[in-house]
């Protein structure tokens, strides 16, 4: 017996009820359970859809879909890291490498002046403010999608999550950095210019480029995205 559209909708709701938020994984699990339910129903034609559905779910073990969800998150994080790494590699090619060297040069020159420590703190605060505003706009978008019950994609969540994580990491460091103003001499301008250049590149890739190209990467990763 082939399952009806209504049964398929029921299975999607069933996966959501069992903490599978993301459409890509829901689709795979729905097809798996549908195949299994159809096979069970051939053997036991008198059993109801709900009975066979529950019997099929039991085959996933006592933790249900939890293990599959956790491992999927790990696998998708690996895909995200690959994307990030590819962008970083691209960044260290011409002409970006000239831009990177120029940024470092300007930062080092400015940080080496008498007011270098204050310029560093102000630049850092501007970066934190930018990340904070970006985080708010990303969170609004995620909330809107969830409220509208749009399809959720794990890779998209990872991209957006990593775009806003910088605020949590960089924000609290401001107070530590203020103490640096008294000892901003010797190698400090060089160290700060190097670290700040790296942070700028990472922020630009993770919080600007990757979210901007998210749709392209989602289409590339999920064949069902375009359907």
């Amino acid at each position: 017996m082939a399952l009806t559209q209504e049964h398929i909708e029921n299975l999607y709701a069933f996966t959501r009820k069992h903490f599978v938020e993301y459409y890509d994984l829901q689709t795979e699990l729905v097809d798996h359970m549908a195949n299994d339910i159809e096979a069970i129903m051939v053997k036991n034609p008198h059993s109801t859809f709900e009975e066979t559905r529950d019997a099929s779910f039991k085959k996933f073990g006592i933790f249900g879909f939890m293990e599959v969800v956790e491992q999927r998150q790990k696998a998708m994080s690996k895909i995200y890291m690959k994307l990030l790494w590819n962008y970083v590699k691209d960044w260290f090619r011409l002409p970006q490498i000239i831009l990177t060297t120029a940024i470092f040069g300007i930062l080092y020159t400015v940080f080496s002046t008498e007011i270098g420590s204050y310029v560093f703190i102000v630049s850092y605060l501007i970066l934190c403010l930018f990340l904070f505003i970006r985080t708010i706009s990303i969170n609004r978008e995620i909330k809107r999608k969830r409220k509208a019950k749009e399809k959720l994609w794990l890779l998209e969540d990872i991209i957006y999550g990593n775009a806003s994580i910088g605020t949590l990491i960089l924000g609290p460091q401001v107070f530590q950095l203020i103490n640096l103003t008294d000892s901003f001499s010797g190698f400090m301008p060089l160290i700060c210019a190097s670290v700040f250049t790296v942070i700028l590149i990472y922020t630009y890739i993770s919080a600007v480029i990757l979210p901007k190209n998210a749709t392209f990467h989602l289409q590339e990763t999920y064949p069902e995205y375009a359907l």
Partner: peptide, 24 residues
């Protein structure tokens, strides 16, 4: 499924989706 997803993330497997009956 964890094994399939791990192999996919490692670039050993490629995926494609087709509509079969009334599901993907």
């Amino acid at each position: 499924y964890p094994s399939l997803h791990k192999l996919e993330a490692e670039g050993l497997l490629d995926v494609e989706v087709a509509k079969v009956d009334n599901r993907l």
